[in-house]
Write a protein that binds this DNA or RNA. Structure first.
Length: 650
RNA sequence: GCCGGCUUGGCGCAAUUGGUAGCGCAUCCGACUUGUAAUCGGAAGGUUACGGGUUCAAGUCCCGUAGCCGGCUCCA
């Protein structure tokens, strides 16, 4: 029987590639009956990646058609889109992007075919003589065969070049080194793509390499899906915590204080206090003990812990104190280096070590909202999510080796339950394992710790994603990733197992048999940094916090001045039971007051006029504009108090 | 830190080819007080981020610094 291609097998226009014996192939691939062949549609995850990858090729063709001097880097698909890197003399301007978009539209309309062609290394070198970066990738191929890096350009097997062929003339108008597969035709890209932004990116991801100019784009099977994606971006912008933080008067970043250091305003302060109070309640319930430690320390501490070895660049420079010199400038008294602390664990270890410990005390759980300072590079700072002064809800748990597994289970349960209390529901786990270039301790110990963590993570039943090389230098970790209201994921809690710092700090406890044993340490941050968690919640709720977190929970709005005193009485009763409530006595008109407090996202507006006053009632108005009129005051108070207690959204 | 962009009163924005800073909201004062998202009138508020330079003249052009934004690298 004659070999057949995907074109023969599938009529469906949405089929754009094949999966042959498990491998993605072009639709034009010839298959036989012996092959297992599955269709890949353009709207499947694989299909979208192919669409985006092909769109990246069209971008590269457009760039070289506008600027033949541009050298090609790499151009893979990424979440929701693609990028392509170029070495060009001058960075792209917004006008350049517009022109490129136009050129891409022309290429898409011309319906070029993507044609795969296998080439030898030497042929590829000859054809791509003007593309230094592609040549470099070909050179790397040898390593790829032994399990080195693979890319969208170069696989472990043979090299392939994709020719873009004009359907009318049959001429090859452009080509690129690429593994594929690709769409059959550029026409399938349609008008569901857009260029988004340009930025610099280091060649092959290393700071030591030159920077290329990267153009990001997005591509979707239809214009409607593109629009939906753009709407998602707008929604994310609408929720941006930096914007909401200013609008709702929650926090600011005074230039006078310095980059990456926030001040919380009264309303932000209330939210923060509620976040912390709830956390403290939970800590008490789970047998934690509270400790406090200073913000600065002599350098020795971080020499012992190893932080100065690994993270010196990320720490604020030392303050050199107590040095004395004589008139000639000779040092007469040796000074001391003090550092702002970037981490609390060494100090907690000192608390552990302050006296002899018994196995009877373990697990010993020390918790602190510890302010730490990290000299993050200026370009990485971002709102509250990446700052230089932050508060960790940090805890260190000391256990016997036997207790490790149970304690890890307990901690994971604690973490997930607590996060649910804040209104986050959708989680998965990530297991970060040893970075071969950055670790202390023996391989056996790492192996054991990693296995233990993996077991506990799997037991939880949550999805577990590997993160190879993602561990800190002292031990592997499980991190809890949470999806927010619009589906973005945030790394939140981390549980790290550490056999190394107890060693470095020579921590011990007396075992039942009277011998001295070394405890194991678990590092556990639940919110990560309180500042960052604040930002995540703010974006998750788009500023409309559940009642318990709302800075102002109830505002009384009199229909006319006359009803102010009546509402004062109602509000006074609420305040008496701890509700954050106030009456708006301003001389704005009632609709204006409603507008103001709706914009401020106050959960309960209590309105009262003659009708309500006569009946001893109030009328509720909610943030969405819905109402509940004539509610007796006792019921209203009960309802509000219950909404706070049960942490519900209204 | 690197690349690019941006920076006008508290906030959001205007200022033709360089010609001597305007508007809305917020604020303050006054009047008004009306059952569900903007009452009216008036006042005050800016050496256009900062520092240099070009020019008869700079918010507008050039250089430097800072901050912010988008990425890259980094993230204990």
């Amino acid at each position: 029987m004659a070999p057949r291609t995907g074109f023969d097998l599938y009529d469906d226009k949405s089929v754009i590639a094949l999966r042959v014996n498990g491998e993605l192939k072009d639709l034009a691939t010839e298959v036989t009956e012996a092959d297992t062949v599955e269709p890949v549609t353009i709207d499947s995850p694989d299909g979208l990646a192919i669409l985006r990858h092909s769109t990246a090729h069209v971008l590269a063709q457009a760039v070289q058609s506008v600027n033949p001097e541009a050298k090609l880097g790499i151009g893979p698909p990424v979440t929701d889109g693609f990028y392509y890197d170029f070495d060009v003399a001058a960075p792209f301007t917004p006008e350049d992007l517009k022109a490129l978009q136009k050129e891409m539209e022309r290429i898409v309309r011309s319906g070029q075919r993507f044609v795969r062609r296998a080439v030898s290394d030497d042929e590829a070198r000859a054809e791509l003589a003007d593309e230094p970066y592609k040549l470099e990738l070909i050179g790397l191929k040898g390593g790829a065969a032994e399990g080195g890096e693979e890319s969208v350009e170069v696989g472990a097997g043979e090299l392939t070049i994709y020719d873009n062929v004009d359907p009318k003339s049959g001429e090859t108008v452009w080509k690129d080194l690429c593994r594929g597969p690709h769409l059959p035709s550029t026409r399938l890209i349609g008008n569901g793509f857009a260029l988004l932004r340009n930025a610099a990116a280091y060649w092959r991801g290393s700071e030591k390499n030159p920077q290329l100019q990267r153009i990001y784009g997005t591509a979707w099977p239809t214009k409607d899906e593109l629009r939906a994606y753009q709407a998602r971006l707008e929604e994310a912008a609408r929720r941006d915590h930096r914007k909401l933080g200013a609008e709702l008067d929650l926090f600011s970043f005074p230039d006078e204080i310095g980059s990456g250091m926030a001040v919380f305003h009264p309303r932000g302060g209330i939210i923060r206090k509620e976040i912390e109070d709830y956390m403290r309640e939970r800590l008490v319930a789970y047998d934690y003990e509270f400790v406090n430690t200073p913000h600065i320390t002599k350098s020795t501490l971080f020499e012992v812990s190893g932080h100065l070895d690994w993270y010196r660049e990320g720490m604020f420079p030392a303050m050199h104190l107590d040095e004395e010199t004589d008139a000639e400038g000779h040092v007469t008294r040796q000074g001391q280096d003090y550092y702002l602390k970037p981490m609390n664990c060494p100090m907690h270890n000192l608390i552990y070590r302050a006296r002899g410990r018994s196995y009877r005390e373990l697990p010993l759980r020390l918790a602190e909202f510890g302010a730490v300072y990290r000299y993050e590079k200026s370009g990485t700072l971002s709102g509250l999510t990446r700052v230089r002064a932050l508060t960790q809800d940090d805890a260190h748990i000391y256990v016997t080796p036997d207790q490790v597994k149970d304690e890890l289970r307990r901690q994971l349960e604690f973490v997930l339950e607590t996060l649910r209390g804040y209104g986050l529901e959708d989680f998965y786990l990530e297991l970060s394992t040893k970075n071969p270039d950055k670790y202390v301790g023996s391989d056996e110990v790492w192996e054991e710790a990693t296995t233990t963590l993996r077991d506990v993570a799997l037991e939880s039943g949550l999805e577990l994603v590997p993160d190879p090389g993602g561990a800190a230098f002292y031990g592997p970790k499980i991190s809890v990733q949470a999806r927010d209201a619009i589906g973005r994921t945030w790394q939140l809690s981390t549980v790290q197992l550490d056999f190394n710092l107890p060693e470095r700090f020579e921590l011990e406890y007396t075992a039942p048999d009277g011998t001295r044993q070394r405890p194991v340490m678990i590092h556990r941050a639940l919110l990560g940094s309180i500042e960052r968690f604040f930002a995540i919640l703010l974006e998750h709720y788009a500023g409309a916090f559940p009642v318990w977190l709302s800075p102002v929970q109830v505002v009384g709005i009199p229909v006319a001045e006359e009803y102010g005193p009546y509402l004062d009485e109602v509000i006074a009763r609420l305040k008496a039971v701890g509700v954050r409530a106030e009456v708006d006595h301003s001389d704005d008109r009632m609709p204006k007051k409603i507008r103001n407090h709706t914009k401020a996202k106050v959960p309960f507006q209590l309105i009262a006029g003659e009708e309500d006053r006569a009946n001893g009632a109030v009328s509720f108005r909610y943030r969405d504009g819905s109402q509940e009129n004539g509610v007796p005051v006792d019921d209203a108070i009960e309802k509000i108090v219950e909404a706070i207690r049960s942490k519900v959204q209204v």
